[in-house]
Simulated scan of single mutants.
Amino acid sequence: MELTNIKGDTYYIKGGTNTGIYLYNNNEGLGIDPGLCGLRPKKIMEVLEEKNIKLRYIINTHEHNDHYGACNEFKEKYKDLNILSSEYSKLYMENPELFSKYIIGGKSNKFIDGKLKSKSLEPVKVDVVINEGKINLDKIELDVMSFKGHTPGSIGIMTKDKVLFAGDLLISPEVLRKYDFLFTFDIEEQIKSLEKIKNIDFDYLVLGHGKNVISKEESYELIEKNRQALEKYINEVRKNLYPPIGLENLLKNIIINNQLRYNYKEYYFYKTSLVSVISYLEDLNEIDYLQSEGELLYYTQKK
């Protein structure tokens, strides 16, 4: 594990979740998305100690614990550390049990808690809420962008070196090859956020999960691949809504037709994304539903 320079004072540490590091002149620094708790934060702190770097701030791009889960371990190490997030992310970070309840759609159970809670057990207190626009941390200006879609609280952070940390707005090619049914909360907002990247003046972009930092030019192709992944399943749902079909059978068809691998957690992730697609098509007035023998069946209104 090493601190890799991207440009100027902006660095990152590769991992399952990539962690951004911005260095101040006094060897203090800002972290972005520390990742899961456990072994990784310990290794990151070892790297920082070797270079005599002390973290003053951590910014979390969104409310999934594979991005924020290690915050408490950093807080134990750096007592005056400030943790920042969006208002919506703060709600989930300070009440982590809400995520499994949201995924399940009710009271959680051991089947999904066993997959989620082992990753991050404790609530994370957010010290400062940040909104879209420019923020100043110790006289260093950063740009905060609202990147809603993957989650309602998703944000991007751009340093003065024009390096953009985009969280999970863009999914890397290697991840898309394995999981192209994207875990998405709001399809319409996701599409808007993908288009938004095109108009941001950045030089390099760091993905939440990906092997390589990408350039502005390379981002256009990846934006298109992510958009195509969304459209693939939107169109597949459209085709499956005649004759009328229930949600569980619709999901079953999608899993089988696309040979999607799944466990208990991933099944509910797919189901969450499917509901997002249904809501998107309803917003477009393309679908309706009917009640039949104890089921809700969705069907297309367009022939």
Rank of each mutant, 00 (worst) to 15 (best):
184 T>K: 02
76 E>V: 04
289 Y>W: 11
13 I>V: 14
4 T>E: 15
83 I>R: 04
260 L>T: 03
106 G>D: 14
250 L>W: 09
25 N>Y: 09
171 I>R: 05
252 K>Q: 10
45 M>T: 04
291 Q>F: 14
278 I>V: 13
272 T>C: 13
287 I>S: 05
201 D>Y: 06
228 Q>W: 01
256 I>Y: 09
196 K>Q: 08
55 L>R: 07
201 D>C: 12
271 K>T: 05
103 I>M: 15
212 N>S: 13
121 L>F: 13
17 T>P: 03
281 L>D: 05
149 G>A: 06
118 S>E: 12
14 K>M: 07
185 F>L: 07
72 N>G: 06
123 P>K: 07
147 F>I: 07
151 T>V: 05
116 L>A: 02
223 I>W: 04
204 Y>G: 02
237 V>E: 03
70 A>H: 00
282 E>T: 11
274 L>V: 10
143 D>E: 14
163 V>Y: 10
253 N>T: 05
252 K>C: 04
106 G>T: 11
27 N>H: 15
151 T>Q: 03
142 L>Y: 15
132 E>F: 09
104 I>Q: 09
66 D>M: 08
219 S>P: 05
269 F>D: 07
49 E>T: 11
75 K>P: 04
142 L>I: 11
67 H>M: 00
62 H>R: 03
189 E>G: 08
62 H>N: 12
253 N>Y: 10
127 D>W: 09
20 G>W: 10
170 L>K: 05
76 E>M: 12
95 N>M: 02
204 Y>Q: 01
29 G>I: 06
258 N>P: 08
145 M>Y: 15
199 N>C: 07
13 I>T: 01
107 K>H: 10
100 S>F: 07
204 Y>H: 12
103 I>L: 15
17 T>Q: 04
187 I>D: 03
30 L>G: 07
169 L>M: 11
180 D>C: 08
15 G>H: 08
37 C>V: 01
35 G>N: 04
192 K>L: 14
281 L>K: 05
187 I>E: 04
196 K>V: 04
49 E>M: 09
245 I>M: 05
232 K>F: 06
253 N>K: 15
238 R>V: 13
143 D>W: 05
70 A>L: 00
246 G>F: 06
141 E>A: 08
134 K>W: 01
97 E>R: 08
21 I>K: 06
213 V>F: 08
89 S>R: 03
295 E>L: 14
256 I>C: 01
16 G>D: 09
219 S>V: 03
246 G>A: 09
145 M>I: 14
259 Q>M: 06
69 G>Y: 00
56 R>S: 15
111 F>K: 14
8 G>A: 11
49 E>A: 13
203 D>A: 05
285 N>D: 15
13 I>G: 06
54 K>E: 15
32 I>K: 03
12 Y>E: 10
211 K>I: 05
56 R>I: 08
221 E>K: 14
199 N>P: 01
281 L>H: 08
80 D>P: 02
73 E>V: 02
294 G>R: 06
154 S>Y: 01
276 S>Y: 03
179 Y>S: 14
191 I>R: 13
70 A>E: 00
200 I>K: 11
64 H>T: 05
289 Y>V: 11
244 P>E: 02
102 Y>A: 12
174 E>H: 09
148 K>F: 03
201 D>M: 11
27 N>V: 11
212 N>Y: 13
29 G>M: 13
42 K>H: 10
236 E>Y: 14
201 D>L: 10
158 M>L: 11
273 S>Q: 04
137 L>V: 10
289 Y>C: 08
64 H>P: 00
225 K>E: 13
209 H>K: 12
